[in-house]
């Protein structure tokens, strides 16, 4: 199984300002300390080997969109599997069209965590939706998913109506507690605390590899007993993608009831569940690359401080990251 992150930012797409790029260049020049490079390839190697990620790259600014690639199993129809339709979907769509041109099936299974704007805003820009030979099945725990997608393409919001899309688009409502063989995976979902409810998904492939997509999930301070359901859901999973938008202090004070969680709670849940790897996800849009990198380093340290059994590998998702499970 492979997991590709096409959009990892929370709430709102963001872009680098010119001053941020200049600061990265300035930091790189200082790190180079006057050395000379034969060509850009050598300079790129220096950047990869020497500079930290916040200097030599960026976590990106597209909103939630994650691809699960799996093969095998009795229900494998060769389809793409995509979690959420945030602004990262646009780039996924272009990439998928190229793969289809190389022979990939023009089938898409989409799984929606919920219907908030940042998780559906990419769909009007999803090129495969204009492909008359494409089939798109949008799975959701929400029976009103179609209403949400149609509404954002009404004339008051967007120039291209939903009915102008040419792909065969259908909607399917899923129920928590059930196991659904869909494409090359078995899918389960869990209800999460978020405005208008959100759903976390578990994808298990034919080899038993497992990935969790759990974003926009607040773990309420007055319902800590309910976290055992998430521990059960995450149990021994190979990769858990978690909403880690806020610090713990923010999530239970000023930003309580905003529907998001923290790096600290995600690590505790994964420790208890004996999960193997955690991907920090749904990054706060006001965070710079340096802020996200600091949060990642602090998360690794918290994992070390609170570890009681096997280590949990804490990675930080960024737009363009591919994780092999």
């Amino acid at each position: 199984m492979k997991v590709r992150f096409w959009g990892t930012r929370g709430s709102l797409p963001v872009a680098q300002k010119s001053s941020a790029v200049r600061d990265k260049i300035a930091a790189a020049l200082v790190a180079a300390d006057g050395r000379r490079f034969a060509d850009t390839a050598e300079a790129a190697r220096f950047a990869d080997d020497t500079l930290d990620f916040a200097t030599n790259g960026t976590y990106g600014g597209a909103t939630s969109c994650v691809e699960i690639e799996a093969v095998g199993g009795p229900s494998d129809d060769g389809a793409f599997i995509v979690c959420d339709l945030g602004s990262g979907l646009r780039e996924f769509g272009l990439n998928a069209m190229a793969r289809c041109a190389a022979g990939h099936a023009r089938l898409y299974h989409v799984f929606l965590s919920h219907l908030h704007w940042d998780h559906i805003m990419g769909f009007p820009f999803f090129v495969p939706a204009f492909d008359p030979g494409a089939k798109i099945v949008i799975h959701s725990g929400h029976p009103d998913a179609e209403t949400a997608l149609r509404r954002q393409q009404e004339e008051i919001s967007f120039p291209v109506a939903f009915d102008w899309l040419r792909a065969d688009i259908s909607f399917r409502t899923l129920e928590p507690g059930q196991r659904y063989p869909i494409g090359a995976v078995t899918v389960e979902l869990i209800a999460q605390h978020h405005s208008h409810v959100s759903y976390g998904y578990k994808f298990t492939d034919a080899d038993g590899k497992c990935a969790i997509y759990s974003t926009d999930s607040e773990h309420k301070i007055d319902r800590m007993d309910g976290e055992s359901a998430f521990v059960d859901f995450f149990t021994e999973c190979d990769l858990v993608i978690c909403d880690t938008m806020y610090s713990l202090a923010d999530s239970i004070s000023m930003k309580e009831d905003w529907g998001h969680s923290s790096n600290v709670i995600a690590i505790d849940l994964c420790h208890e569940a004996r999960a193997k790897r955690l991907a920090l996800f749904h990054h706060e849009p006001t965070y710079s690359d340096a802020d996200i990198q600091r949060m990642h380093r602090e998360s690794i340290r918290y994992e070390e401080l609170t570890r009681e059994a096997a280590p949990l590998d804490v990675i930080c998702a960024y737009d363009g990251l591919t994780v092999e499970i």
Partner: peptide, 15 residues
């Protein structure tokens, strides 16, 4: 030292 780090990481030293 451990608790000081945990308070800082969680930002509980701010509240």
């Amino acid at each position: 030292d451990i608790m000081r780090e945990i308070l800082a990481i969680s930002r509980y030293d701010m509240v």
